[in-house]
């Protein structure tokens, strides 16, 4: 399916507006909701690029798992909604240079990029993707899963130790 420019702008707005809201809203839950909207928008961008597998994975992992986890954490620790205030404000002096550095990097990347979204692959990329993942990049892939496994074991260990009175 081909997408025209207006669709792209709508989808882009779906990404950018929630992204801005996410960092500006004071209510943590609302912020998380904006983040989920942003993730969904990114999934939509993937669809416009004919990368459906990526879109599905984006929804599955970011909306279905990570956001839920974040919401879980917020709901279980902070009892009620309501503005919690910006609790990172002590680090604002450190954030300034960091943001400036990021701006420079992004500017460089943007300046050097050639935008050719119009020439996205027509045939499904899924098969190619998995071929790359399981042949050429098999080692990093396995390594990543090992790291995740270690993280899981560590989490289980922490949770178990906490249980003991």
């Amino acid at each position: 399916m081909q997408f025209s420019t207006p669709v792209f702008y709508i989808v882009a707005a779906l990404v950018i507006i929630p992204a801005v809201l996410m960092v500006s809203l004071k209510n943590l839950i609302y912020s998380a909701m904006a983040m989920i909207a942003c993730f969904s928008g990114v999934a939509a961008v993937f669809v416009t690029l004919n990368a459906e597998l990526l879109a599905a994975s984006q929804l599955l992992i970011y909306v279905g798992a990570i956001s839920i986890l974040i919401l879980f954490a917020i709901m279980l620790t902070r009892r009620r909604s309501g503005a919690v205030g910006i609790f990172f404000h002590r680090q604002s002096w450190a954030a300034l240079p960091a943001a400036a550095a990021l701006a420079v990097v992004l500017g460089l990347v943007l300046g050097s990029a050639r935008f050719n979204a119009g020439s996205s692959p027509k045939n499904p990329a899924t098969a190619n993707l998995s071929r790359l993942l399981f042949n050429q990049y098999a080692f990093p892939f396995e390594l990543a899963s090992l790291v995740l496994l270690a993280a899981i074991v560590g989490a289980v260990l922490l949770a178990r130790r906490e249980r003991r009175p």
């Binding site: 909701m33 994975s57 929804l59 279905g64 899924t126």
Partner: peptide, 21 residues
């Protein structure tokens, strides 16, 4: 879609989200 199977599973996360909210 050529990845319809994954999409069905992916969409189900919105129910989880709605119920949690």
């Amino acid at each position: 879609l050529n990845v319809g199977l994954v999409f069905i599973v992916a969409f189900s996360s919105f129910t989880v989200l709605g119920i949690l909210l």
